[in-house]
Design a binder for these strands. Structure first.
Length: 377
RNA sequence: GGAAGUGUUGAGCAAUUGGUUGGCUCGCCCGACUGUAAAUCGGGUCUCUUCGGAGCAUGUAGGUUCAAGUCCUACCACUUCCA
């Protein structure tokens, strides 16, 4: 059981501040969770995640960790926490996103999904039960139900069929999860996932279905897959209205800084996204003043700090001109600095949102800050 | 001073026997990236443009030819070797 305390609810929006307890510590929400697919947040040390970025929880990916290094390495190590030397909470995605992203290399059936490994071409079948078993063996604090993340656009018929199957898979996940004790010496929490593409009827049905299963955490999947932001907001808002207010809500894969503030105001508590790390490696910096493409020629001779308002040490240690040089030269330090900066910014964004929810001026603060976030500097 | 060789876009290279180069890689400029098959991918990079095209281009100046980056002559620059 992952206890969730709802500490404050905003008067002018649905934003909330809470505290989610897990076996590896409590998480203050709203929270942004860095993505560490293969047992590492790409380019960032665990010490940096803790001391520099102040990450409260990171993600891992069932599909990727299963293929490499494999359970025969993770299990003897004592689970993922010990293997990667991270003693704070971990959440693993079930592989449901790979059903979407590896669409050319997989085959979906009622029983489960057969993947063709992107590493060596070998075939592997993920059923709901298997996804739970693997996540038990990885040992994350929060584990996700096995679902199908549908693409966008998606026909109503397909979205409906997929959602119904995801619901049946959800029940199988729940049954199997409850029948299998943890392997390591700590509790794990299973989260259910709402699907339904961008169809309001389906989203409502799915939200009600998932909510009725009374998971400790409810997640919203199948969004931020290419649909317009208005659709993302419409679906998020709708789904939140049907989810238990006492349970944390996790919006999977979102998003831009603006997306995150908007969705916090709709009642989302947890976010994850590859954007701060992937875009960092490609030279994009997120700041309170807007977005910087550090590769651009305009920064060539800008010797000012990377981000005067940044919370991480790299923001003041290094200049834009130096960082541009590193990125242009494909020096790995450039990607590291950008990743640290962006993650620290995303986490500061969620932390400040939390502070303002508690202070009672969240909406005013959001309206003031949000428009600047998408500026192109 | 003599001999040999080489000159194609910012750089490095391509381009049948003379037969449609504005080709490739890098660099440079710009863009994309949302539960990570991504330190990746895409576009642009002679000039002008009403964006449909038009024009000028292979060191310089000539020549041969239906046709020249390619052959010939002179000059210029560079490289190597010999004095």
């Amino acid at each position: 059981m992952a206890n969730f305390d709802l500490l404050h609810t905003d008067k002018n929006s649905s934003a909330r501040a809470g505290l989610l307890e897990t076996a590896h510590g409590a998480i203050e929400t709203p929270v942004f969770m860095p993505v560490g697919t293969a047992g590492t947040v790409k380019g960032v040390h665990q010490t940096e995640l803790k001391n520099e970025i102040n990450a409260q929880i990171i993600l891992g990916n069932t599909y990727h960790l299963f293929l490499r290094p494999g359970l025969d390495v993770i299990n003897p190590a004592g689970g993922l926490h010990k293997f990667i030397n991270w003693n704070k909470p971990i959440l693993t995605d079930s592989g449901g996103y790979q059903v979407y992203s590896l669409s050319d290399n997989r085959n979906i059936k009622e029983e489960g999904v057969t993947f063709k490994s992107h590493i060596d071409g070998s075939l592997h079948t993920f059923s709901p039960e298997r996804a739970i078993d693997i996540q038990r063996e990885i040992g994350a604090d929060i584990i996700m139900a096995f679902d199908e993340c549908t693409p966008w656009p998606c026909s109503f018929d397909y979205a409906k069929k997929s959602m119904d199957m995801t619901h049946r898979w959800l029940l199988r996940c729940k049954t199997h999860f409850e029948s299998q004790p943890p392997i390591y010496n700590h509790e794990q929490t299973l989260a259910g996932i709402v699907q339904g593409s961008t169809y309001t009827d389906l989203r409502k049905e799915s939200a009600e279905f998932v909510s009725a299963q009374e998971f400790d955490i409810n997640a919203i999947g199948g969004l931020s897959v290419g649909e317009p932001a208005e659709e993302l907001y419409k679906m998020t808002s709708l789904v939140c209205s049907f989810l238990d207010k006492e349970k944390p809500r996790y919006l999977m894969g979102v998003g831009t800084p603006q997306n995150i503030l908007e969705c916090i105001s709709m009642g989302i508590d947890m976010f994850d996204c590859v954007m701060p790390t992937r875009n960092a490696r490609n030279g994009m910096l997120f700041t309170w003043e807007g977005i910087i493409n550090i590769r651009n020629a305009k920064w060539k001779n800008d010797y000012n700090p990377i981000d005067g308002k940044g919370t991480s040490s790299v923001d003041k240690l290094y200049s834009k001109a130096y960082l541009r040089h590193l990125i242009h030269s494909k020096e790995m330090l450039g990607a590291q600095i950008c990743s640290i900066h962006n993650l620290a910014f995303y986490i500061d964004l969620a932390r400040q949102a939390r502070m303002h929810i508690i202070a009672g001026d969240f909406s005013r603060w959001k309206d003031e800050v949000s428009p600047k976030l998408s500026n192109r500097l």
